[in-house]
């Protein structure tokens, strides 16, 4: 709790919370209410610049950009949350077992994890969407699979550092089974690093989801996604620059909120180093 009271005193942290809660609010609102129907075509209002009736202008089908961005926020955030959720779930379980039991299980899990780490995440996701098929499910599964090894590494290294501590031994002596010990005593101790990794990969999946949609391999049209709207804007970049500016701004502001949040968390949980938890887990590779 002490850590959180330190957090609240940092202006950057408060700013990031403000950004994140407004984005969440917009995304939440976007799933109930948008000023216009985000899918409704209006031929008379094609490529209108921002005005009183269409705050952020309209696109090449006369669809209201603000409504599309609001509804796109819902999709982007849902996809990113589910992606991180999948990677977190599988990564935690595999990482905890790997670190706790050691031996051949550890070697097997880590060999597979290392092999997947050798494939750059976006590339792996790009290729997996071909097999799984595009769409929301494909993006979540592909990115989730690509990110799982990073979580495995984080959890495993935490587990390795606490495996020989007294309270784990006490749990054994008390007659608790290994599974009980893992879930009751080992995993809760990995929460700090997990929260940091989770926030970093929330940013990654938001970026990757919009990148995949931008390439036309994410959530298919006509459903609005931030990356998809940006991709469409390319053809109208001369006549309608607002179509390009606002969706990118939406992604950038959300990412800024997540990254500032993650940075503040890192400062508190790991004030000495502030290593970025990422493909680039330098400490790990040094060993």
């Amino acid at each position: 709790m002490r850590q959180f009271s330190i957090l609240l005193r940092q202006p950057v942290y408060c700013l990031s919370l403000l950004i994140l809660s407004s984005v969440l609010l917009v995304a939440l609102a976007g799933s109930f209410y948008t000023p216009y129907n985000p899918l409704a075509l209006d031929i008379n209002a094609r490529l209108n610049p921002p005005s009183a009736s269409h705050w952020l202008g309209t696109d090449h089908f006369g669809r209201d950009l603000l409504s599309r961005l609001m509804s796109g926020a819902t999709v982007s955030i849902r996809v990113s949350l589910l992606t991180v959720g999948i990677a977190l779930l599988f990564g935690t379980v595999a990482g905890a077992f790997s670190g706790f039991y050691g031996g051949w299980l550890d070697r097997a899990i880590m060999a597979v994890a290392d092999a997947f780490l050798a494939m750059p995440a976006i590339l792996l996701a790009l290729i997996l969407t071909v097999v799984i098929g595009p769409g929301e499910f494909g993006v979540i599964t592909a990115l989730g699979m690509a990110y799982t090894p990073y979580f495995i590494r984080v959890v495993r290294s935490t587990v390795l550092s606490i495996r020989t501590r007294e309270f784990i031994e006490v749990s054994h002596v008390m007659g608790n089974g290994s599974l009980y010990t893992i879930f009751r005593h080992v995993i809760p101790n990995a929460l700090g690093p997990l929260i940091i990794t989770g926030s970093a990969f929330f940013a990654h999946s938001l970026l990757s989801e919009s990148a995949l949609s931008f390439l036309g391999l994410g959530v298919p049209p006509p459903h609005p996604t931030w990356g998809g709207i940006l991709a469409d804007s390319r053809q109208y970049i001369m006549e309608a620059p607002w179509l390009c500016i606002f969706p990118g701004l939406a992604i950038a502001i959300t990412l800024l909120g997540v990254n500032l949040f993650g940075d503040a968390l890192r400062d508190v949980f790991d004030p000495r180093t502030g290593y970025r938890v990422e493909p680039q887990n330098v400490e790990e590779r040094k060993a």
């Binding site: 990148a211 940006l230 390319r234 390009c244 990118g248 990412l255 990254n259």
Partner: peptide
């Protein structure tokens, strides 16, 4: 870190 590469490219 927060600016998407494809957006920066378009800008």
């Amino acid at each position: 870190l927060s600016v998407p590469s494809f957006w920066l490219a378009l800008l």
